[in-house]
Design a protein around this nucleic acid. Sequence first.
RNA 1: GGCGGCAUAGCCAAGUGGCUAAGGCAGCGGUCUGCAAAACCGUUAUUCACCGGUUCGAGUCCGGUUGCCGCCUCCA
Length: 492
Amino acid sequence: MSLRLYNTLTKKKEEFLPLEPGKVGIYVCGVTAYDLCHIGHARSAVVFDVICRYLKYKGYDVTYVKNFTDVDDKIIAKAIAEGTEISDISERYIREHNEDMDSLGVARPTVAPKATENIKGMIRLIDTLMEKGLAYVVDGDVYYSVEGFKGYGKLSGRGLEDMMAGARIDIDEKKKNPFDFVLWKSSKEGEPWWSSPWGNGRPGWHIECSVMSQRFLGDTFDIHGGGEDLVFPHHENEIAQSEGASGKPFARYWMHNGFIKIDSEKMSKSLGNTMSIKDVLTLYHPEVVRFFILQRHYKSYIDFSDAAMAEARSGMERLYTALKGIKDAIGGDRDLSDLSEKDLSGEDESVFDKLAELKPKFAEAMDDDFNTPRALGYLFDAVRLINGYLPKDAVISRGSLFILNEGRDCIREVGKVLGLLLEEPDDYFGKDRERELKKLGIDVGEVERIIDERQKARGAKNWGRADELRDILAAKGIVLKDTPTSTTWKIG
RNA sequence: GGCGGCAUAGCCAAGUGGCUAAGGCAGCGGUCUGCAAAACCGUUAUUCACCGGUUCGAGUCCGGUUGCCGCCUCCA
């Protein structure tokens, strides 16, 4: 089956044909390490994590490069404000970033290079651009000359004339063209610097990605990704730098993830309404966050809100409840290795056949530009099929056991590609409960005392008192579940 | 001002030319229960912003209208 993906460069869905059969090189623009990561970073990370997981699932040998920008105006400003070195700032936030990504179940990239480790490469690349007449020096600053690169604007779909017509950028006297961008900046007093043929200074923002992608993936590579906001100018400038220098095509497929809004408003640093990953994870299980992200197609924007997250949590609960149901039905240590399709009766066989469709359908959805919402839909279809097969009493046939076991394997396999359903159901619900208790400020001891009292009332068939106590707990958001012998509870 | 995107049930969201318009959440009905809840099962859009066109056939293609949004400035 062939993978098709939407290419920002051609504005079409295209069949994905890697440069080298069986191998994929992918570069994604990482973060600037000067602050905590927010849920927007989480989306980008989860989206490309799932893309890489699926490519590996399809058998590709994936090289995934995601950089850290560790020299930048904002990092410098923060270092000055705190009276420390920029490396202290960047190292701190790289550490925080990695911690957040680990929490979210985002696999580490194959390589995570830092800009400051690649200054020499940047100087070399700028030198090449100088030689080719694509760059010029003004007062120790080096600029890229966009007029010298005829493909400028091909990714963002705007010609230089269009942009001039709607120019909303400051006119800089130093630049030949307002869209020329800086490759190398001379350093001011107190700023970090590296020596270069153009004097002491530091790199511009765009040059690092051209250098690091080339270093680890070559002049031409398969996929370049990032947030949609990076299309212009960042990615446009990368193309200008890389293709201008090498004369070869740069990335062959460009993929851009949509933004996260918060309560229908754009989330951005300038608006100050960002939500950090750490904050989100105190409120929701990481898989709920992933589920929330994957329930929408990666290209469209999604709206973060408490209500939307609560829905995602309900969705995850349905999936884990099914896994728990299977586990309970099968029992702890039962050996299922002797079961086979031979144990299926006629009716079982049709259910089994439907269940077997899960994996091919999942692959079909993912092959269609990573359609995770549709893929999740198939996962829920399989769950419904299995739920209908859970035994009503303690007796369970060999055929049912076989179906439940196979069904669980299918669900888990598909879930794993999405980074979901990786936990044992009891662990998932345990962590979820802990989080909810904290969120609602509920005292477990008190809850259990009230439940005990209610059990006594129930034993005495004092239904009025029992219902009253149940209502008290319900007001706290606690939902009771009575069984013939006991009462369990959860957060509603 | 320039460039681009979106509009599908109460909410979220797939579907981009053709069997009954996925799935989730919420709602409703049922099973269960002392009654509930939870869980499960079932059910919920003759219709895809509006108008016109192409076609044997359109939510899906084309043109127009309206509304919302993004990028053009650091941003994932």
